[in-house]
């Protein structure tokens, strides 16, 4: 069965840790990291990368456009 796998890349230094992306993720993949970036913000990261479908919802709501989204079909 073909399955969709996704992944995001967060521009960590540009992330302001607002957390708006977290509730927007239908798979609960994205979360704020306990570490901080150079500006002291808890940046977004994939806490649960296996579940990402690359729907780009997080990127849609990100006010700073720090999220890049990739998606591919996988045959299992």
């Amino acid at each position: 069965m073909a399955k969709v796998k996704g992944s995001i890349v967060v521009n960590i230094e540009r992330c302001k840790g607002c957390g708006v992306c977290v509730p927007s993720c239908p798979q609960s993949v994205i979360a704020l990291h306990e570490d901080v970036n150079a500006k002291g913000y808890h940046y977004a990261y994939m806490a649960n990368p296996e579940e990402c479908t690359g729907c780009a919802n997080c990127a849609m709501v990100c006010p700073d456009a720090v999220i890049t989204v990739y998606r591919m079909k996988v045959n299992e």
Binding site: G6, S7, G54, T68
Partner: peptide, 27 residues
């Protein structure tokens, strides 16, 4: 394996000048 140019579905538009936005987080 997923993060490759051919799988790109969303990226920051190049029409943004590459500097941090001055807005508050979440604005």
């Amino acid at each position: 394996d997923i993060v490759k140019e051919e799988n790109l579905v969303f990226r920051k538009t190049p029409l943004f000048i590459d500097k941090p936005l001055s807005y508050c987080p979440g604005c």
